[in-house]
Amino acid sequence: MSPVSQETGQGASTIHEVLERVCGAMHIAEGFLPPAHAIAWSVASAPFVVHGVRSLTREVREHPESTLLLGASGAFTFVLSALKLPSVTGSCSHPTGTGLGAILFRPPIMAVLGTITLLFQALLLAHGGLTTLGANVFSMAIVGPWAGYAVYRLLRRFGVPLMVTVFFGAFVADLSTYCVTSVQLALAFPDPSSGFLGALGKFGSIFAVTQLPLAVSEGLLTVLVMRLLVQSSKGELTRLGVLLSGKQNRTETETEVVAR
């Protein structure tokens, strides 16, 4: 692409460089959100992450045997968010991998695992950033997992087969993450003439269309890992309420979920 003419100078990254990072990683780059926005998103994310850390420590204390599967869920996020894939729009993006952990351990725990992944990328890869961590955590580690989990629960309630629910859970978790990113950018950079909605349309059409086939890939990969888990870890999946053994269990897990 042609270099951007605007010089921001002063040794800081030019907007062109920033955009390379913003869009290459699909997370909002360091220093790219105005301070007020950065602080607001951090404040919004913090309680979710704190709550997540609590759920995580409780889970590990009560079920030490799930540590390994927790690690595997985090690992899945690590792999998928390192995979930059070409998309139909002729540009690249990467999946998030947050759907699996949200389905297995519920979204609060995924808020922690997602934050760890984002921190790794912000500190070592200069992708995303510390000032934009709050906003990126909000989209990838909070909204994505919750949206995916909600779809998963909803479809399960209607008796849709497990693997179909897993696919749509992961698909929605991925896509909603980038929808939130678009909203965040549109809020920070509303279009001078058409305002927030105009900017949202612009960012949304760029990010969401690129992300669509990647969300399908993420759904399929999540189904693959879930199939392997069903083969290898029946006991654990049953305990987590993903696999249901008989009607008795079904109502039990459902009341448990409601109670939580």
Binding site: M1, V4, Q6, I15, H16, L19, E20, V22, C23, G24, A25, M26, K84, P86, S87, T89, G90, S91, C92, S93, L185, F189, A199, K202, F203, S205, I206, F207, T210
Partner: peptide, 13 residues
């Protein structure tokens, strides 16, 4: 196949 930045760049700038 760089990033989704071609269009995003113009949009933001």
């Amino acid at each position: 196949f760089t990033g989704a930045d071609g269009e995003a760049e113009t949009a933001i700038t």
